[in-house]
Write a protein that binds this DNA or RNA. Structure first.
Lengths: 118, 118
DNA sequence: CGTCTATGTTGACGTCTGTCGAATCAATCT
DNA sequence: AGATTGATTCGACAGACGTCAACATAGACG
């Protein structure tokens, strides 16, 4: 495998019907698993939650980097979340701001829908 | 809609407020990440989806073990899903049946709730 | 009892992942 | 320009993870 992470997941293309609808195909599972894997680390989950819950919908790295690991590690995890299509980043002057990729929460929620809604 | 005379907190359930409500603590993230990590593997995701979408709500290993890996590997992944509190298993005669741990989908969904549905 | 089928467990091996320190890039301030 | 602060990249290393073959266990059936 040349590319370790594969192409980034585009927003809105999370694929796949709800997990309860039918068994996922190999390719669907590959795509969806990338998102869950990104959330499957405590540090990343805290970073994601910090961004998601930040007033204004975005946070600069300096605001969320107090998660008990070094700054390079924070940067590494933010990159992973970005590659998974969960976060987007933008540099404004000195600081880099991260915010949720729009729709991701709903997408994942739909994947886990047990058929209740609608 | 929490029950007024709420029943005792069930053990093994998911913890944590929605990710968007406030930054997760280290311990909360540790707990929640375990679930996402369990779903963060393509094979496990397929197994989980196969069980979740199976008529009757349960499936024996023989019904879902065609995911392209060896039988020991399937067994290993089912164990991981069980340890993460996502699946439950029961032996009935020759076969072992797996089904969703009740409420898990809703729990994870609540974690990802963006505040819309209520 | 012995054997066959269905699952789970063990041990080993290569790969992926999380982590850090050091170096590097980016923008601001004196 | 040089110095300072914020953020990413690089290089390296320990530990976790996915995988399989071989072995072990559980129940069914003759």
């Amino acid at each position: 495998m040349p590319s370790p992470a594969g192409p980034p997941v585009e927003a809105g293309t999370l694929c796949c019907p709800p997990l309860t609808e039918r068994p996922l195909s190999a390719q669907e599972a590959e795509t969806a698993a990338r998102v869950f894997k990104a959330l499957g680390d405590p540090v990343r989950l805290r970073l994601f939650s910090a961004v998601a819950s930040h007033p204004g919908g975005e946070a600069c790295v300096c605001d969320i980097s107090d998660v008990g690991v070094s700054q390079p590690t924070v940067s590494h995890h933010l990159k992973r979340l970005k590659e998974a299509g969960l976060l987007a980043s933008e540099r404004r002057g000195t600081w880099v701001y991260y915010r949720l990729e729009p729709g991701v929460l709903a997408e994942i929620g739909r994947l886990l829908a047990s058929g209740g809604a609608a």
